[in-house]
Design a binder for these strands. Structure first.
Lengths: 245, 245
DNA sequence: ACCTTACGACAACACCGTTGACCTGTTAAA
DNA sequence: TTTAACAGGTCAACGGTGTTGTCGTAAGGT
């Protein structure tokens, strides 16, 4: 097969497709995103994408080695869009809070894409930039390297994981989503106190809370734990090894 | 087609399959679980399952309306198994840590089921039992109702979200998974210090840390933040009434 | 002994990702 | 200006997937 995908430098990209479209990596990615937004994540297939582009499905293999490559390109595009919106202030906790909420919001804005890109490491430009930025915020705040990486990892994965989780909930068929919401009212809130005392005792809070995303709460918990850890570290640096034989 | 799936009450389940197996909902679910465990997540397809059972694939549609239904049945079975493994000790933080890790491990053992079930509220017996149990742990620890629900929600969603995230990573085709691992070594660890100082400065930690799941770390952060919150609450309760043991 | 019907088997459908072969127009070099 | 190389399009085919309409048959209930 020699090599199907030609490195971008050697591209000449001349002949338009049979329906007159001139393909390019960018056009393919953006069309894929549009397709996902309009018809859901499972509407994205090589064949459908080809049809949407007015090209033969096999043409896409001139640009991506396989469908997975395409997914990574889509994921990276989303990271870039989110990062471009973010404006850091210098307060590490506030900045990470803001970025986390923006990533989460970005995922919710593209529910279908978020679900399939959440678990991938792309190693592409935008992702690298994001890693560098977040690590910088943590190290500048004073976290030692090992701790910074540990917290970075938990922070990013939590944002991705909740993004995917809440996206999946949003992407459910409308009927299913309403059914879920009513389960808390109709089933949980009506359990008798003698068999389920804790549910019955907190029913009011459950109905109010379970309809919303818990990401903001989880994010705050994570950041406050990190802040506590940072204070510990600073204290130890100032008063090195108090009493230890 | 009238209705393909017959309600369990009306089942007669007599004729064995051509290869002599007598099908049942339980047999199908357990065989599916075995198949996942033995040959990986992508080994589970209706056709393969049929082959493993010695039955025609279409026969399975007498028991489940579609493949999703089967996944949910598997997921429900998993909730039950996880709860049955858990042995609370009375130390709320340790108990929630243990349960969280067990839920996460359960999800990883059955990636496809975890992905599908993570965002759904079933309102079924096992789920209700889990809600009641976790809320009980938090209230007994001393969290007021509103706080208990807030933390319960973040805790459960975190377990589900990370379970789904890490499951999705595991469910990737083998080649893609290995590619991901090597990205940290081959791409990130080789970025020059002048353009990416923070990545270069922590490369050693990144390579070591990013290959693992960050759920244990994220769980610990959440629980320690909750513990800090609880101390605050207790302190506030004790101050208005100074002498109180 | 007879209906009824649960349920297994079969064949077919529409889709999927992917590949090898072929062809064609552009482009860089001679 | 001619020409050879080749990027990049199309086509056909392979083996996989979930799902359904149809039919036959054996096991119940009466």
């Amino acid at each position: 097969m020699s090599e199907r995908v030609v490195p971008p430098a050697d591209r000449r990209r001349r002949r338009p497709t049979k329906q007159g479209v001139v393909l390019s990596e960018e056009l393919i990615v953006s069309t894929a995103l549009r397709l996902i937004e309009e018809h859901g994540a499972d509407a994205l297939s090589v064949r459908r994408l080809g049809r949407a582009l007015g090209a033969d499905p096999s043409s896409l293999y001139r640009y991506f080695r396989h469908a997975d490559d395409l997914m990574l390109a889509i994921a990276d595009e989303l990271i870039g869009r989110t990062l471009r919106l973010w404006r850091p202030t210098g307060d590490w906790q506030e900045d990470l809070r803001d970025l986390g909420l923006k990533m989460h919001a970005g995922a919710l804005a593209h529910p279908r894409a978020a679900v399939l890109s959440s678990c991938r490491v792309t190693g592409r430009a935008h992702e690298i930039q994001a890693v560098e930025t977040i690590l910088g915020v943590l190290r500048d705040a004073g976290f030692p390297d090992g701790e910074a990486v540990r917290i970075y990892h938990a922070y990013v994965d939590q944002a991705l994981a909740f993004g995917a989780l809440d996206s999946a909930a949003i992407a459910l068929p409308r009927a299913a989503r309403e059914a879920e919401a009513s389960v808390w009212r109709a089933t949980y809130a009506r359990l008798p106190a003698d068999t389920h005392p804790h549910i019955a005792g907190t029913a009011r809070h459950l109905v109010a809370d379970m309809g919303r995303s818990s990401y903001p709460a989880a994010l705050d918990l994570l950041l406050s734990a990190a802040a506590a850890r940072l204070q510990e570290i600073r204290a130890r640096q100032e008063r090195p090894v108090p009493d230890r034989i």
